[in-house]
Amino acid sequence: MKKFLLVMAVLCALVSASFAEESLIVDKEKGEIIIPAEVNGKYLVSPTKHALSYYKGGNGEKSIMRALVSEIDYYNALTELGAVPGNNIKPEDMKARNSSEGKSTEGSKLTVFLTWEGSNGEIPLDDAVITTVANGEVRPIDLRFTGNLDFAMRSHPGCFICLDSCAAGISTNAAWPTGAMNNKEVSFKGNVKILPPDGTKVNVIVRLVK
């Protein structure tokens, strides 16, 4: 038993150590940020509201992709590009019981694409995420720079990209107001037919729409 526990402890230490902090790339000329991340295979088969979260954050393992850089760096990179945060979603807005009671995020508009080895070009986030809507209405992802820096600094959820309007994410989806997920009007998961397998390194490219 002692030997087994020792082996497990060594294994855990080795695996934890293998996570290396990377850095994001900010290209002001192109108006884009490249975020290194990895696919979390769990959310290719089960629903989540998180597209991308920092692996050390509270939602690091609750997301389709885990970012290898901090969400605070992402916030700073967006402001460096000239994006303006909406900062209009408050924690109390998350209590909305349905989308008609809810609020949509404001802020500069962003687009997101993914690349990985063998991806055959840039894949739009819309294609990498399966959106299931209760009434069948199709709404493309409308990503905005929500802001939420205070919440991110205080609670460390690690959220980069939320798939509905949210009081925790740095960038969130204006297409679905707060309350939509509480009322099961919409759900999201990774597209297993598009995304590469669990653990694959991906580059998440976020562009500011001018």
Partner: peptide, 16 residues
């Protein structure tokens, strides 16, 4: 995936 992900998350060995 799901049972393995439960173990993986519990042990925090997310790259296994």
């Amino acid at each position: 995936i799901i049972p393995a992900s439960i173990i993986r998350e519990g042990l925090m060995i997310n790259r296994v």
